[in-house]
Design a protein around this nucleic acid. Structure first.
Lengths: 358, 358
DNA sequence: CTGTTAGCGCCTTCAA
DNA sequence: TTGAAGGCGCTAACAG
């Protein structure tokens, strides 16, 4: 009768079941299963065997309670559906996995209410570290609330709202400024003169990139004048901008990110603005699809998965060694591709399919 | 001295802190905070106030232990970086959020070892429901192991390995067969005759789609003969296939999914195979980028986010009402776009709107 | 090397 | 309406 675990409510065997089956104490089982050195090989083996037979799996909640530590990380992302965020999630997850941490990914953090709920959930789950990926800065109070969990920001959102001194919150970001500068230089080398920018959502990254364009032009002695366009995520918006572009004829169109640039490429096709002949179009991010579009998209590649990994790493350091999460800026790469080349040899006859080589 | 919570190790106030501050019992606080009706308005208000002041947040681990229920769902995906999986994650997460469940997303389930670890993690966290998204079937034993958690499969992987009778595991999938059939009919209407298929990874979805092509041809009285190509995720592979295609000249190239199709489009460009004039290329999935490629990609749109939502819904039902997760097949839509048109200039096509132009 | 004893924070009878 | 007591599954001293 005392042989088989009684499978209470959850139906899962516990330490007590194993202990009972072997006539040892729970503590011994606990130690053996965790590989504590102070257990004889014999008992350890026996315990392991029974544990396997019973299909024992430790209960994370109980462990977390007893150990006062959850080995859990939280990650807030505005939208997993965005390739750049997905890459960050992947990198973050890989790093966490390799260190034995569980990560709870909370999507939809762009929405105020949902973000607040997400944050609370993470706190309830005793997340030891939280990464805010391109998420609008939680008000100062929120930052207080998450203590003693450690926090880092991935990408630029939130970076401008806190003076670095007061709260040592890490920031992992790509060197957007430098990327933009490389881009501008490239476009100038191509002889471009009339720059325009398609704004993304009104968040820090967008402001940063936009301002970087102005500053780069200025630094290079060009009068920093750019035409700006705005757009939401609607297809109609891209069409509107495309029409404006067709009329105003800038010769370089920098877009907030690759997704927008790809959409613009599509919209411009219908306005019969030929890229790159009439107009150079560039993106930002380096998402995989940008490398196979037609024409392929010139862009600034940010090491998104590395950002994720780095953020997780910074959190580990903070959790395990008390090292305050640092500010880290990762390098970017300019990928020059078909969308910003000088006129490229055409091979198709009249059909609307610009051929991009390489 | 007994006024402020003593902030033990975790630094978070507990029920006991609130109770002490007010001179009531923990039980009362617990009830009040959970809105139990048997608490006077006065005490409830006082308790709520103090809780807020102290920044109290319930401890999920403790609650889960005491309540013997975690309100947690697990989701395994092979690769969040794949747009179709990201959509599923998003839909699943949204549904869970709206019902107050926390979801733990485990990425990288294509990797055997990582998948095993992920599954274990989910069990440790007492996930009450687990969704396997396009994840190679965990051996029968694994299925036993996850009990009493409920499980569903999203997409086709795993669907063929279990006889429906023995384990009532739900399956949420799109009607791939019908999608393929619509696609074949479309291509035949275009006068295509030499069909070819680019295989995806060796998983159920791929086999299913491939076989569906054969069956559709057969059903339509065509000799079910297709040329098959294989490819990994490497760019070199796409180039190889493109070269073969350029030599063998099929007139319709169906690809396992949109990602592959988009890559093929890119590779074919360099082989100077003109799409759709020389060759129709089609995808499967209906990822957003397929709608803005050049040419735009004809594809079968599956309701990915809905699949995610539905899977979550089925799990709720199983958890809360004991309803065994059903098998659900969601309808798909054929989106006819530029990559499979007869030579026609690109017209303004809506994103997901199947064009009925002849 | 192994057992005993206390909790971790919350919930849930059962009394009062 | 509120309190007291015990327990969820595991870990962490402290004994032996």
């Amino acid at each position: 009768m005392i042989e088989q675990p009684d499978l209470r409510r959850t139906g899962r065997p516990t330490l007590a079941d194993i202990a009972r089956a072997l006539g040892v104490s729970e503590a011994t089982v606990s130690r053996a299963l965790r590989g504590s050195p102070e257990i004889s090989e014999q008992t350890r083996a026996a315990i392991r065997r029974v544990a396997r037979e019973l299909g024992y799996v430790p209960n994370a909640a109980a462990r977390s309670l007893a150990r006062q530590t959850s080995r859990t990380l939280g990650l807030l992302v505005p939208d997993v559906t965005d390739p750049i965020h997905a890459l960050i999630v992947a990198g973050f997850g890989r790093a966490a996995d390799s260190r034995g941490y569980t990560v709870i990914v909370m999507d939809g953090s762009r929405d105020e209410a949902r973000r607040a709920r997400s944050l609370r959930t993470l706190i309830e789950h005793q997340a030891e570290g939280i990464a805010f990926c391109s998420t609008p800065i939680p008000m100062r109070e929120a930052i207080e609330e998450i203590r003693p969990a450690h926090a880092v920001f991935i990408m630029h959102e939130g970076a401008d709202a806190l003076s670095p001194s007061e709260t040592p919150l890490g920031r992992m970001r790509a060197d957007d400024e430098h990327g933009i500068r490389l881009m501008i230089e490239h476009l100038l080398a191509l002889g471009k003169q009339r720059f325009s920018y398609v704004n993304g959502p009104d968040i820090a990254s967008n402001r940063l990139r936009r301002n970087a364009i102005l500053r780069s032009l200025e630094a290079l002695g060009i009068e920093p004048r750019i035409r700006e366009y705005s757009t939401g995520e609607e297809q109609a918006d891209f069409e509107t901008v495309a029409r404006l572009v067709a009329r105003e004829r800038p010769d370089a169109l920098l877009c907030y990110d690759d997704k927008m640039a790809l959409n613009m490429l599509d919209a411009l096709r219908r306005e019969e603005v030929s890229v790159p002949d009439d107009l150079a179009v560039t993106g930002f991010d380096g998402i995989p699809f940008a490398a196979i579009s037609n024409p392929r998209l010139t862009t600034v590649i940010q090491p998104a998965d590395l950002l994720g990994e780095t953020a997780a790493g910074a959190l580990f350091d903070a959790i395990e060694n008390g090292t305050p999460p640092p500010d880290i800026t990762l390098p970017v790469t300019l990928a020059i591709r078909g969308s910003s080349r000088r006129r490229v040899p055409e091979s198709g006859a009249g059909v609307a399919a610009p051929q991009a080589k390489s």
